[in-house]
Amino acid sequence: MTEELDTFYLELIVLACETSQNDVYMHGYLEIRLNNKKPYAEGDIIDISEFYESIDADGEFKIFSCCCGIPECSGWIRGIQVVHLENNRIKWTNLNSGQSWTFQKHLLVDALQQVDEEVENFKKFFTQKDIEYVGYGS
């Protein structure tokens, strides 16, 4: 019997932002969906450093956080328990709700590589338009 794996999807969302001096810059953020649903609230963000650290390490990571940067502010009292399994799989367990997902690691790694390529393309494009693009997680 084959274990059914969850789907992992990562997307780069790019927005235009305006400073108080009416300067425009572009900013990106990452969105994660597991089985086509975000495992965090609409106003929450992905903590990029925790997310990147969890790619190769086991442990509890506060991958998701309130937009203010304090995970507990939006109910993330505990983080995501990350376990790297056999056959290049990763298991995430939300230690607050008990919900868990198991997916192929290459889905995450491939998606990050694609996002990094998109970031470079956006930087080149916006530089030609004299608009700053700050990437994601800034």
Rank of each mutant, 00 (worst) to 15 (best):
A57L: 10
N22S: 08
W76R: 11
T127F: 08
I48G: 00
D23P: 00
E117T: 12
F122E: 05
S54H: 05
V14I: 11
I46Q: 07
D44T: 08
Y25P: 01
E120Q: 11
K124G: 00
A41E: 15
I45N: 10
G79P: 11
Q81H: 13
S97V: 06
Q21C: 01
F126T: 02
D116V: 04
Q104N: 14
E31I: 06
F122K: 03
A16Y: 07
S74L: 11
Y29S: 08
S97E: 14
N88W: 12
T127G: 00
I77G: 05
E42F: 12
S74P: 03
L5P: 03
D23K: 09
L95H: 11
M26D: 07
D6A: 12
E31A: 07
V109I: 15
E120S: 10
Y29A: 01
G28T: 05
Q104F: 09
Q114R: 13
Y25F: 14
R89K: 14
I90H: 05
M1S: 13
N22C: 00
F51V: 01
F61V: 01
Y133K: 03
I32H: 06
Y133I: 02
S65H: 10
S74W: 13
S100M: 10
Q99P: 01
Y136H: 09
Y25A: 02
C67L: 12
F51H: 01
F103I: 04
E31G: 02
W76Y: 15
Q99F: 12
V14C: 04
I46L: 09
L107R: 11
N87P: 04
E31P: 00
D56C: 00
K37G: 01
E53F: 04
D56A: 03
G28A: 04
L107A: 10
I131D: 05
H106F: 14
G98E: 12
C67F: 15
G28N: 08
E50V: 01
E42K: 12
W76N: 08
V82H: 06
A41P: 00
F103K: 06
V119E: 14
N121T: 06
H27A: 07
G98M: 09
D56Y: 13
Y133N: 05
M26L: 10
H106Q: 15
Q128V: 00
E117P: 00
D23T: 08
K38F: 04
A111W: 10
L34A: 04
G98Y: 08
L108G: 00
E86Q: 14
Q81E: 15
E60T: 09
A41F: 14
E120H: 09
L95T: 10
M26R: 04
S20M: 02
V119N: 13
R78V: 03
A41W: 13
K91C: 11
V83Q: 15
M1R: 09
E50C: 02
W92R: 03
